[in-house]
Design a protein around this nucleic acid. Structure first.
Lengths: 193, 193
DNA sequence: ATAAGAACTTGATAAATGACAAGAAATCAT
DNA sequence: ATGATTTCTTGTCATTTATCAAGTTCTTAT
């Protein structure tokens, strides 16, 4: 149980003394999940916060036709959270499921609260995590409304090529907001060039 | 200079003692802007945080054809912030402009920091504000990728009918992710029923 | 190794939306 | 009030993407 990667993640976002990071992560516990396993189920209250050290996770909703629409793809190292559910204790609308075998760290709200109110550096880190997540989501929204599917595909391919090694095109298609047939045709078009 | 509405907003999101709210908002200053005035310009660093007490504001980007794509519409009372710019001092990608005459309160990062680290209730409020904003943005993204334009239009009409009184269809169209011609046709179709 | 299922591709056709242009209606500045 | 500007609508046609169905390839469980 080595917390090196977890601790480094805190450092990488906001400069914090080693001893303080160790105090923050003291109560984190590790666990693994096999691929295609639910991490957080729909309509439940997420009582843990998760750090994904290894693997890929996606969140998705079921639309009116019960089709899965991928809302986010998480690639380690990163935190995986349903903010509204975790902090406001509301039922989740999305399902969070592993795409590959995964290695996680988890802790609960009680511990987050203690750190948040007692450790100034953790407060800064937490806020930064929100700012970055909000900003990424905003960028994604802008991309979805202002660029066409082919551009969005090329952006993903350029910025996160590793995703294509691990995640099926069906999931990627729904993340890009198109059907798998359309994605297949986009790839065909691009390969011609 | 009456801070009643501003103070009430804090209360409405998270229960805080009156005296503490007054302390939090002590350093907020008010100002007005005429309609169609820039609040935060593109490529600048937003050094203030804004509370919109009265009026409507929108944020938008300029796409590759220099067309305005509305990313958000803010209706009072609410906070208006470019989180990434304000907290990470990064240049904004979006322009924030008033749609109507507006009345604002503002304060700076120094004050936010003092409150954030000294007042536990403000910390909770701040985090809640992030959680709610993140969640709204996530809902909007889900709506954009999983529902068609007509449904998105009807949702906006049901949940925020007041927007249609103050905001031009051109801006609403771009917020819904369609052209103004398409929105016009959607409205025509619906009116037939 | 093999059968079953899932992932991916492809074709034909339909639906949704965009692009452009022109005209009508509303708003604004003087 | 009047002309200029902007907003909104509408027509025609093009583009993008979805839908459905069939076939191929790849994975996985036994």
């Amino acid at each position: 149980m080595c917390k090196l990667i977890l601790n480094n993640y805190f450092h990488s976002l906001f400069p914090i003394q080693k001893e303080i990071v160790e105090k923050i992560t003291e109560s984190f516990c590790d666990f693994t999940l096999n691929k295609n396993t639910i991490l957080i189920n729909k309509d439940t209250i997420s009582i843990k916060t998760y750090f994904l050290q290894k693997g890929y996770v996606r969140s998705y909703i079921l639309n009116e036709n019960n089709e899965e629409v991928t809302t986010n793809i998480y690639s380690a190292p990163c935190f995986v959270n349903d903010f509204l559910s975790f902090f406001k204790k509301q039922p989740t609308k999305e399902i969070y499921k592993t795409i590959t075998d995964c290695y996680f760290w988890e802790t609960d709200l009680e511990n987050v609260q203690a750190n948040f109110h007692n450790i100034a550096e953790f407060r800064e880190f937490s806020r930064l995590l929100f700012v970055i997540n909000y900003s990424k989501l905003n960028d994604r929204l802008i991309e979805m409304v202002s660029q066409k599917a082919e551009t969005r595909y090329l952006n993903l391919l350029n910025h996160q090529p590793h995703i294509f090694q691990q995640v099926s095109l069906k999931i990627i298609a729904s993340y890009l907001g198109v059907t798998d047939s359309t994605l297949s045709r986009i790839r065909k078009e691009i390969s011609k060039i």
